[in-house]
Write a protein that binds this DNA or RNA. Structure first.
Lengths: 147, 147
DNA sequence: AAATAGGTTTAGCCACTGCTAAAATTTCAC
DNA sequence: GTGAAATTTTAGCAGTGGCTAAACCTATTT
C-alpha cells in the first residue's frame, strides 16, 4: 500500500467535518431568515422585509436580495412591496430551527450560563449540532428536571 | 415614546447575536487554517499547502488564495513553492482554537455522544462558544471527573 | 545536463452576502 | 384625489471563498 493511499483516507475522514461546516453555512442563512419570518408572523401577524433587516442587523437591500434566493429555493413567497409568507417547506424549516434553538438555549441555561449568553451562543451553535448531540442535550435536560 | 423607539431598542438587542455570528464567520476560516497548519507542523514538521487543501477538502487553488489573505493579515508567512509558517500571532490564534476545540470536544464526549459526532460537531461549534460557555463546559468536565 | 513527472501558482470564472445611493412605489395627510 | 413622506426595490460596487484549466516551478531520473 503506497503511503499516499493511507494519507488520502485519513484526510478524507478529517475533511468530512469541514465539508459539513461549509454545507451548514449555506443553509444557515436560510434557516435564520425563515425562523425570523415565522417569529414575526406569529408576533405581529405579518413579516415585513424591513423588520427582518432590523432584527438581522443588515441593510434593507440585503434582505431583498436574499429573499429572492429564498423564493427561488421555494421557502418563501412574496409580491413586490408586500409582506413575506412562508411556503410549507419554509414553515417546516422554521419549525426545525426553532426546535433546535429551544433545545440548545435551554441546555445552555441548564448548564449555568447567563440568559444573555445563552441567547447569543445558541444562535450560533444551533446550526452546527447534529441530531445525536441534540438528543444528548435533551437527555441532559430531562435528567436535570427529574433529578 | 414613539413605538419606533422601543422597536429599535429591542431589535438592536436581537440583532446583536446575528452581528456576532457574522463576525465569527469571518475569523472562523482563519482560525481553521492556522489550527490546521499548527497541527501539520507538529505532526510532520512542516505544512504544505496541498496538505491543508486535502484536510480541508478544498482545491489547492483555494488554499493559495486564502493563504495570501492570511499573510496580509499577519498570521502566516510563506515563500512561493515553499511550506507555510505561522507568525507569533498565528501561533497564538492556533493555540486559542485548539484550546476551544479540546474543551468542546471533551465536553461533547462527556455528554455521551459518540467520538465521530464529537469530532464533527466540535469543529462547527468551537467558533461560536463564548468564554462564558467554555467556562461552563470546563466546570462540567471537572465536576464529572471528581464526582 | 536534459527530459519528464509531479506539485504549486496564476488566471479567470461563479455565487453569496454585505453595502450605499438612486429610483420606484405605496401610504397618508389634506 | 393629489402631493409629500415614508417605505421598498433596483443598480452597481466590494470582498470572500469556491472551482477548473493552464502555466509555472522543482525535483528526480537517466
Amino acid at each position: 500500500m503506497p503511503p499516499t493511499a493511507r494519507k488520502t483516507g485519513t484526510a478524507r475522514l478529517r475533511s468530512q467535518a469541514f465539508r459539513r461546516i461549509r454545507a451548514d453555512h449555506q443553509s444557515e442563512l436560510a434557516e435564520d431568515y425563515v425562523e425570523l419570518i415565522a417569529d414575526l408572523i406569529d408576533e405581529k401577524g405579518e413579516a415585513r422585509g424591513s423588520d427582518v433587516a432590523l432584527r438581522l442587523g443588515v441593510a434593507n437591500a440585503t434582505v431583498v436580495k436574499t429573499l429572492k434566493r429564498l423564493q427561488d429555493a421555494g421557502l418563501v413567497t412574496q409580491e413586490p412591496y408586500r409582506s413575506i409568507f412562508l411556503t410549507g417547506e419554509g414553515w417546516r424549516m422554521a419549525e426545525g430551527g426553532r426546535r433546535k434553538h429551544r433545545i440548545v438555549e435551554g441546555f445552555l441555561l441548564a448548564l449555568g450560563v447567563t440568559e444573555a449568553t445563552a441567547r447569543i451562543d445558541s444562535e450560533g451553535i444551533e446550526h452546527h449540532v447534529s441530531e445525536e448531540t441534540l438528543r444528548a442535550m435533551a437527555r441532559f435536560l430531562a435528567r436535570g428536571r427529574t433529578g
